[in-house]
């Protein structure tokens, strides 16, 4: 098996319907191209498996759970340090008052989880990437006209030609190969 990770050649084809795109994807898989090298560009989300499948696990919810605890620790620390640093009895309450600590801890824990959701999802989706931001990503704005763009990462030469032929045979329009990231 050759190392396909380095290739940056993508074959794109436009399809009018999900059914057509699914046929195109099926033809690409039978070339054979691995499932993780085939994807779609669409203006609405397509059900997983309708055209292609996303087999990679989604891990960022674990980061959200972890940052909930980081936030909780920060909230707990903030209120505890404040009590100890400035030990003034107010309204007859104990220096270390647990119920207010729960409230502050809870709010900052939720803040940590919300921020982690944004950052984690951005990383997972590949948004706002500073590293390698100059690398060209394949795209076709005609997805907003109702088209589905089927994309497949291929190697130069025979595989590229076979992928183009497979897309054309299954009704792909404006089928072409472009240098860029999937």
């Amino acid at each position: 098996m050759t190392d396909r990770g380095k290739t940056d050649l993508v074959v794109l084809g436009l399809f009018d319907s999900v059914e057509q795109a699914a046929k195109g994807a099926c033809a690409l898989r039978s070339l054979p191209l691995p499932a993780h090298d085939i994807t779609t560009l669409s203006s609405v989300p397509l059900p997983d498996g309708a055209v292609c499948e996303d087999t990679a696990p989604i891990r960022f919810p674990w980061a959200v759970a972890a940052f909930w605890f980081v936030g909780a620790a920060a909230g707990l620390g903030l209120s505890l340090v404040t009590y100890l640093d400035y030990p003034l009895i107010t309204a007859g309450k104990e220096i270390i008052s647990v119920p207010p600590m729960i409230i502050v801890t809870y709010e900052i824990a939720m803040l940590g989880a919300l921020l982690a959701t944004l950052i984690g999802s951005f990383r997972s989706i590949g948004l706002a990437r500073l590293k390698g931001r100059k690398a060209r990503k394949v795209f076709d704005p005609r997805i907003h006209e109702g088209k589905i763009v089927l994309c497949a990462r291929v190697e130069h030469g025979d595989e590229e030609n076979r992928a183009i032929a497979a897309m054309k045979e299954t009704g792909g329009l404006d089928v072409r190969a472009e240098e860029g990231e999937l």
Partner: peptide, 24 residues
């Protein structure tokens, strides 16, 4: 932020969107 609408992006977007809703 570079959103293109790939299948992988949509799937993760939906998970994050649901997570935001659950947390808020």
């Amino acid at each position: 932020a570079g959103f293109r609408g790939t299948h992988r992006q949509w799937r993760r977007y939906h998970v994050a969107s649901t997570l935001f809703a659950i947390l808020i």
